[in-house]
């Protein structure tokens, strides 16, 4: 037994000591993660099999909560809204971030200031930003309605019309993420060796061809990372919905702006259905996991790593 542990730690006394030191040093972090992340996740797992209103003792109901998910229209709606939002947010976010990164990678004057400006929304409180954006989208006196007036779109009820409300939510989400993605893209762009462009130039490649055949493939590992992060992030959009619909109908008219995270929050804290809400959380977790695994699987079709043979 003891020898097994010793062997597991390392082959020599020195390496064992090193291993122990290493463990001691990461222990605070690992323990913190276990207590404040691992434990709640496990508890959510347990809660999802119970009916629990937070006051009375939980009652074990097996898979009832998950079964309910299948039949509740409101869950289906929240799921659909979440995917609609992802479809709105992820492509827009990535294209904009890539565009901005490409421009800010050029030797412009005041490039540093511009980069900082684009990054500013990332460090702005989502709640504060959403409040301001709510004002911008205000149909009667908001700035947007005045800008859109000439196009016959003045006084559009962005935050109330069930068919429109996801658009302002998506706009704020994109606005807040572009800076973050841009920084990653910029880092990715810096790693592309200049010789490749020179070689392409000598071969007579034009501007578009250099972008298409040098920049894009060389940037694909970065793009992959950005896409994965963006998708996960969009699955978890909550604050924007919470704040932007607060002054009209929370969660949108008829639940039209309710995303999965907002849905489970309301189920837990408004309806006191903590078991059901935990089940929703677990399903959300499973969906994100599946989507991410799927992305990892198909990455070899389009992600180009330098070390690989082309």
């Amino acid at each position: 037994m003891t020898t097994a542990i010793l062997n597991w730690l390392g082959p020599t006394p020195l390496s064992r000591r090193k291993a122990l030191w290493g463990m001691a040093l990461v222990a605070p972090n690992v323990l913190g993660l276990m207590f404040f992340f691992g434990l709640p996740v496990l508890m959510a797992f347990g809660t999802s099999f119970n009916e629990w209103n937070a006051i009375k003792p939980p009652r074990f109901v097996g898979l009832d909560n998950f079964e309910r998910l299948l039949y509740e229209d409101s869950f289906e709606q929240a799921l659909t809204n979440t995917f609609k939002l992802i479809a709105l947010v992820v492509p827009a976010e990535i294209l904009l971030a890539l565009g901005v990164a490409l421009l800010l990678n050029l030797p412009l004057r005041g490039r540093g200031v511009l980069r900082a400006l684009y990054f500013l929304p990332v460090v702005t409180s989502t709640v504060a930003a959403s409040v301001v954006w709510t004002g911008i989208f205000q149909p009667r006196y908001g700035i947007l309605s005045q800008v859109l007036e000439p196009f016959g779109l003045g006084e559009t009820k962005w935050l109330v019309e069930p068919g429109l409300v996801l658009i302002p939510v998506a706009v704020v989400a994109v606005w807040q993420r572009v800076g973050f993605d841009m920084v990653i893209f910029l880092a990715g762009l810096q790693t592309i060796p200049g010789v490749l462009y020179e070689a392409a130039l000598i071969d007579g490649a034009g501007r578009w061809q250099r972008f298409r055949h040098v920049t894009l493939p060389m940037l694909s590992p970065t793009t992959f990372l950005v896409v994965v992060l963006a998708v996960i992030n969009s699955f978890q959009i909550f604050d924007q919905v919470y704040v932007m619909t607060l002054r009209t109908v929370p969660g949108g008219v008829g639940g039209s702006a309710t995303t999965l995270t907002y849905y489970l929050y309301r189920r837990a804290f408004t309806n006191s259905e903590f078991g059901y809400a935990s089940a929703v959380a677990l399903v959300l977790f499973a969906i994100i996991l599946l989507v991410t695994v799927f992305q990892l699987r198909i990455q070899r079709r389009w992600v180009y790593y330098e070390s690989e043979e082309g």
Binding site: V160, T248, V249, V253
Partner: peptide, 16 residues
Amino acid sequence: IWDAINSEIVVQIFDL
């Protein structure tokens, strides 16, 4: 029923 009564019916009748 807070949202339905407090704001949803209001928005539906008096906005939409």
